[in-house]
Design a protein around this nucleic acid. Structure first.
Lengths: 140, 140
DNA sequence: CGGCATCCTGACCGATACTG
DNA sequence: CAGTATCGGTCAGGATGCCG
């Protein structure tokens, strides 16, 4: 069981003003947030959090992901050192994917965010309904 | 001081296999992750976490954000109920932005993720260097 | 001051076909 | 089985100009 215990003031305190473009682009948090924000990465990480799985297992587990995106997602995660890829010289070839130790440490933060999303989904949905009613045709 | 204390097994346990396309698209976590993953939302939320700020203050604080994206980011956050917008009928008009109570509860999870990113930035950088050396020309 | 309208570029992502 | 190659669509995001 992993737990996280975070003091928010740590982050706000570290942030100096103004935030230049280079600071933002070079910020490791920006980097990670973009990876986490792409369509499949978090889902793959969470699935691999249950244990090592083969390419085909992931492909079937996520039903509608394209092979292109599954491969791209796994390559990116592998490049960042979050996922390790193991091949066995069988015929045909067998490939297993699993989380690295670094990848496992990511489970805590992304679970915190996911659980926040689940916990507050109705608040968000309600807020959107109000906004869309008060601002017809705006945004969207 | 906000703190979060998360049991990762909560998330993995809730996830059933296989994950259909509709389940993934309708998942509130997917939704939040995409908003968090866009280029400016988290930065704006963190800045507003320090207190109410005017449009121009945010614009100068983030130096190189375009007005278009600042407005879009604020609108999206407002629509989701994370940010509140207050206008004062001065001449010219004054507009203040601040976090809602819901928005403040998001500071915990995104700080957890950001601090993870900062803590492991060197691991990630090193992993990328190894990957890029072993797979020249692949990905990127 | 605090936007909105418009145009443009490059990601991200999906569909399809092919392969060691 | 586990990918690669190619094409095309959609959309985030930047630049510029105008406005109440």
């Amino acid at each position: 069981m992993f737990t996280t215990n975070i003091d928010v003031s740590d982050l706000a305190g570290k942030l100096a003003l103004p935030v230049t473009g280079k600071e933002h682009d070079a910020c490791p948090a920006t980097d990670v947030l973009r990876r986490v924000g792409d369509k499949w990465s978090v889902l793959v990480v969470v699935l691999l959090g249950r244990g090592v799985q083969r390419y085909g297992e992931l492909d079937r587990a996520i039903e509608n992901i394209s092979q292109r995106m599954l491969t791209r997602t796994l390559r990116n995660l592998e490049r960042d050192g979050l996922v390790h890829r193991t091949t066995y010289p069988t015929v045909p070839v067998t490939v297993e994917y699993g989380l690295t130790l670094l990848g496992e440490t990511l489970l805590g933060p992304i679970s915190a965010l996911s659980l926040w999303a689940v916990a507050h989904q109705h608040d968000i949905e309600a807020a959107r309904a109000v906004f869309d009613k008060q601002n017809p045709g705006k945004l969207m």
